[in-house]
Design a protein around this nucleic acid. Sequence first.
DNA 1: TCTATATATCGCTAAAGTCCGATATACAGA
DNA 2: TCTGTATATCGGACTTTAGCGATATATAGA
Lengths: 96, 96
Amino acid sequence: MENDNILKALAHPVRRDMLAWLKEPEKHFSSQEHPLDMGICAGQFERCGLSQSTVSAHLAALSAAGLVTSRRVGQWVFYKRNEETIAAFRATLSDL
Amino acid sequence: MENDNILKALAHPVRRDMLAWLKEPEKHFSSQEHPLDMGICAGQFERCGLSQSTVSAHLAALSAAGLVTSRRVGQWVFYKRNEETIAAFRATLSDL
DNA sequence: TCTATATATCGCTAAAGTCCGATATACAGA
DNA sequence: TCTGTATATCGGACTTTAGCGATATATAGA
């Protein structure tokens, strides 16, 4: 659990938005065809206005930091928050 | 209270070290000539191994983020943690 | 096997961040 | 006013990050 990757990942507003959206899927991704409890598929995040390749890179950064998990199902990749890592990170910030 | 500046400031290991050192001044800055409760003067942070100008820039980043306060006394500038901002930031991270 | 869709990766450019030495500014004290 | 010390700012080199379009890969379905 390296805090450095996490803090670098959080140092970008788009990635923070993505994490925040994932916190309330039913609120932000009701348009998704797939059931929300599978996670949110990557394409949904293009709503941030950036290109597909850039969105993919942001998701990869969140994933590398351990802030989200991903799972491929068919042609889609579904993302979910990784609450364990997030909670652990928050705990380390208690003694910031 | 701009979270963006704070997270960007925290996204650098040297600046996190600086903040951590300031948490226990007696532990890390016992060599300082001035009383520790005035704060820690900028030069003390050059122990990180970076140049004076770079250290000054890092301190400026921390200050711009509101994570530290600074006070000039004579030719020195003393830095202290800004616990209010830090606590408020930690609170916002509760709903990360 | 062919086509269509979703995602990842590549190659590139632009912008931002990091670092340094040199210089400027602020202050103290002679 | 002059000198010495502490800190800040400037200018430039270098690295990293962010963004894009194009292409590659993975999968589904005909």
